[in-house]
Write a protein that binds this DNA or RNA. Structure first.
Length: 592
RNA sequence: GACCCCGUAGCUCAGCUGGAUAGAGCACUCGCCUUCUAAGCGAGAUGUCGCAGGUUCGACUCCUGCCGGGGUCGCCA
C-alpha cells in the first residue's frame, strides 16, 4: 500500500469530519489537497497543503485553518507529531514503524510492489519504432524503440491495458523506390551491370537507396527467382514483386534487430493491408460525410517557395477546425492518397479497435506532423480520442568524445545493430532512458562502459549485484536462517534504527508514487533517476559499514539484526529489479 | 514568416504535471581509505533558474512578449 495515498485518504476523511461537525462549509473540492514527502526531511515525513488550498473556499486564513487541521491530524493513526510551518504547510511526523511496515510490503509483493491501479485497466495503445522497411534501423530508431517499450511496460505496471504496436509503411512511394534500387542491385548480382552503374544511377538520383545492405537482398532474390526479373520491363509488374520481396526481407531484419534489443510488439499493422481492405477510402468517406473534407488550393509554403510550386486543387482535410494551422492534403494532385490519408485510416482503425487513449513515439523530425494527426484523431473519434506524441531527439554516438564514424553497411548512419554489438542491449536500453526523450542525448561508448559512479547503468547494477553478494555471504554465515522473501518479511524490523537505514526505507516507500507519476506523465526516464538515487543511498549504507564494522549488514554474533538488515538489502534489490524490468534490463547477480 | 522542442552551478543534467532555503554527478579544495566484491569514501565551495511583464497566498514550473540554440514547413514517408 502506498503510504502517501493512505495519508491523503486519511486527511480527506479528517476534513470530512470537520465538515460534518459544521466547522467547515460543505461541498469543498479536495482534489488539490496533496500528501507528499517534503523536500527537506527535517520538515517531517509527510506534508500537506490542505490549509493553503482550502483557505479561499472556506473564507479562513491559512494559518488559522492549518492550526485547526493540525489538531485533528494529531489523532490520526501512526502520527507522532504535527506542526504548522511557513505559509500554512502542515508537516506530519510518522512513527518509524510506518516505514518498516512499508518494507514488509515490498518483501511480500516482490517485484509487483509499486504496481498501480492508476490506469484502472483502461486500454491504451502505444505505437513506436514504425521504421520504414527500406533499410537497417539506426540509433534514432533504437531510442524510439527503447522509449516506447519502456513506456509501454511502465503503463502496464501502472495498471493500463497496453497494446504495443508497430505501423509498417509498406505502401507508397518509398517502398517503390527501394524496389527500384533493389532491381539495380539484382542486375548487378546477375552480372548484367557493375558497381559503377549503380553509383551512377545513385548520383543521377534515379535511385535513392545506395547502401550495401541491398546486396544480400538482391542475392536472396536471385537465389529464389534466378534471372526471372531481368527481362521484365513493365514497372507495374516488377515493382510490386520486388517491393514485396524487399519489405518482407527488411521486416525480418527489423524484427531481428528488435529481438536483439529485447523489444516486442503485440501488433504489426500494415499500411498496405489497410489500403487493400479499403480502409483508406472508408476513413475518407467518413470524414466527407462529416463535412470535413473539400477540394481546394493551398497557399504556397511560407519561407522559401519550392521552384516548381504551382497552385493545384487537391482534396483537403479541415485540420484547422481541430487546432492545426492549415488544412492538410489527403490526395495528391495526381489523385493518389497522401501518406497522411493512410495515417488517418490507421488512426481510425485504432479508434475502431476501441482505443481512445493513444501514444505515438516519433523522431523529432516528425514534430511538424503532430498537430494534423491529433486533429484527425479528434475528427475521427467525436473528440473523445486523445493522442500524446512523444518526440525523441537526436542521439549523437561518440567514443571518448569523438563522433563514431558511420557504418559502411548502411552508408550514412550508425546502425542499431552496431550499437548493440558494441555495448550490449542492457546498456543501450538503460542509457537511452537516462534523459527526457525531448532532450538530445550523447551516447559515448567509452563512458557507458565505465565502471564508476558517473555511469548510471554501472552504478545501479552494481548496487543490485552487491545486494546479491551479501546474500551469498549470509547463506554461509547463517545456514539455518530462512532468507526467503517470506522469511525476511518476518524479521524484527525494529532492529532497523540507523537514520540512513530509515532513509532507504523512505525512498522505497516512494517507489509507487514514482511509478504513478512517471506513467501519468509518460516519462519513463524518471525511473532512471529514482534508481540512481536509491543505488546511491544503498552504496552509502555499505560504505558506512566499511568505516564502522557494527554497521555492516552481516553481524556474525547477531542473527536478528543481520536478518533485519538483509530484509532491507532485499527490499532495495527488489525495487531496483522491478525498475530495471520496466526498462527491459536484466538485473545482474554479480560483477566479476 | 509560421509552428514544435530546448535554455537551471564552470561542464553534463534532475527538479515528482504551482509549494518551503532550486538539487545530483563531473571538475575544484581539504581529509580519509585496501574493503560484507576492487572499479573509492566523507566534508566544503558553486546559481540574476535566458530576459521582461502577468496570473496567485506562493512561479524553475502556468500565460504573454522578446533573445539565443535545434527541428520542421504543398502533392516525401
Amino acid at each position: 500500500m502506498n503510504i502517501f495515498a493512505t495519508l491523503k485518504s486519511r486527511i480527506d476523511a479528517a476534513i470530512g469530519e470537520l465538515v460534518a461537525e459544521g466547522a467547515l462549509p460543505e461541498g469543498l473540492d479536495l482534489s488539490r489537497v496533496s500528501a507528499e514527502p517534503p523536500r527537506e526531511t527535517s520538515h517531517g515525513d509527510v506534508a500537506t497543503n490542505a490549509a493553503m488550498v482550502l483557505a479561499k473556499p472556506t473564507g479562513k486564513n491559512p494559518k488559522e485553518l492549518a492550526t485547526l487541521f493540525a489538531a485533528r491530524f494529531k489523532k490520526m493513526p501512526d502520527v507522532t507529531d504535527v506542526s504548522v510551518a511557513g505559509p500554512g504547510f502542515i508537516n506530519i511526523k510518522l512513527d518509524d514503524r510506518i516505514w518498516r511496515d512499508g518494507l514488509r510490503d515490498v518483501l511480500v509483493e516482490g517485484t509487483a510492489y509499486g504496481d498501480g491501479q492508476a490506469g484502472q485497466g483502461e486500454k491504451i495503445n502505444v505505437e513506436y519504432v514504425s521504421a520504414n522497411p527500406t533499410g537497417p534501423m539506426h540509433v534514432g530508431h533504437a531510442r524510439g524503440a527503447v522509449v516506447g517499450d519502456a513506456l509501454a511496460r511502465l503503463l502496464a505496471k501502472a495498471g493500463f491495458a497496453v497494446t504495443k504496436e508497430y505501423y509498417i509503411n509498406d505502401a507508397g512511394g518509398q517502398v517503390d523506390n527501394v524496389a527500384r534500387a533493389l532491381r539495380m542491385r539484382y542486375l548487378q548480382t546477375l552480372g548484367k551491370i557493375t558497381e559503377v552503374d549503380v553509383q551512377g544511377a545513385l548520383e543521377r538520383k534515379e535511385i535513392q537507396y545506395g547502401g550495401d545492405y541491398l546486396i544480400p537482398v538482391a542475392e536472396a532474390l536471385a537465389a529464389r527467382d534466378a534471372d526471372k526479373w531481368a527481362s521484365v520491363e513493365d514497372e507495374a509488374v516488377w515493382i510490386p514483386a520486388l517491393r514485396d520481396f524487399t519489405v518482407a526481407y527488411m521486416m525480418k531484419l527489423v524484427k531481428e534487430d528488435l529481438l536483439a534489443l529485447g523489444v516486442h510488439h503485440d501488433v504489426f499493422s500494415s499500411e498496405k493491408a489497410l489500403v487493400e481492405a479499403g480502409k483508406v477510402d472508408g476513413a475518407l468517406v467518413f470524414l466527407e460525410s462529416e463535412g470535413l473534407t473539400y477540394t481546394g488550393v493551398l497557399e504556397p509554403p511560407k519561407g522559401k517557395t519550392p521552384d516548381d510550386w504551382e497552385p493545384r486543387p487537391q482534396l483537403l482535410f479541415k485540420a484547422t477546425e481541430f487546432g492545426d494551422e492549415v488544412d492538410r492534403p489527403v490526395k495528391k494532385s495526381n489523385g493518389t492518397w497522401t501518406y497522411f490519408a493512410g495515417d488517418i485510416a490507421y488512426h481510425k482503425d485504432k479508434v475502431d479497435r476501441g482505443f481512445t487513449n493513444l501514444v505515438n513515439v516519433w523522431g523529432a523530425d516528425h514534430g511538424g506532423y503532430v498537430k494534423r494527426v491529433q486533429a484527425a484523431l479528434k475528427a475521427l473519434s467525436n473528440g473523445k480520442g486523445k493522442l500524446d506524441v512523444q518526440l525523441c531527439q537526436m542521439v549523437r554516438v561518440l567514443n571518448n568524445g569523438e563522433p563514431v564514424k558511420m557504418s559502411k553497411r548502411a552508408g550514412t548512419f550508425v546502425t542499431m545493430r552496431d550499437l548493440i554489438e558494441e555495448v550490449g542491449k542492457d546498456v543501450v536500453r538503460f542509457i537511452m532512458l537516462t534523459r527526457k526523450n525531448d532532450a538530445p542525448l550523447d551516447f559515448d561508448y567509452a563512458k557507458v562502459m565505465e565502471k564508476s559512479r558517473e555511469n548510471p547503468v554501472f552504478y545501479v547494477q552494481y548496487a543490485h549485484a552487491r545486494g546479491r553478494s551479501v546474500f551469498r555471504h549470509a547463506a554461509e554465515m547463517f545456514p539455518t536462517a530462512d532468507l526467503s522473501d517470506g522469511g525476511l518479511a518476518k524479521a524484527d524490523f525494529a532492529r532497523l534504527v540507523d537514520p540512513d537505514e530509515i532513509g532507504v526505507l523512505r525512498t522505497l516507500a516512494n517507489w509507487p508514487r514514482t511509478i504513478e507519476g512517471a506513467a501519468f506523465a509518460h516519462e519513463p526516464h524518471r525511473l532512471a533517476f529514482y534508481m540512481y538515487e536509491l543505488a546511491s543511498q544503498f552504496h552509502g549504507l555499505w560504505n558506512k559499514g566499511n568505516d564502522a564494522a557494527e554497521l555492516r549488514f552481516l553481524q556474525p554474533a547477531d542473527q536478528s539484526v543481520s536478518v533485519a538488515r538483509l530484509a532491507l538489502v532485499r527490499g532495495v534489490g527488489l525495487v531496483i529489479a522491478s525498475g530495471l524490468t520496466v526498462f527491459g534490463v536484466e538485473p545482474v547477480e554479480e560483477m566479476r
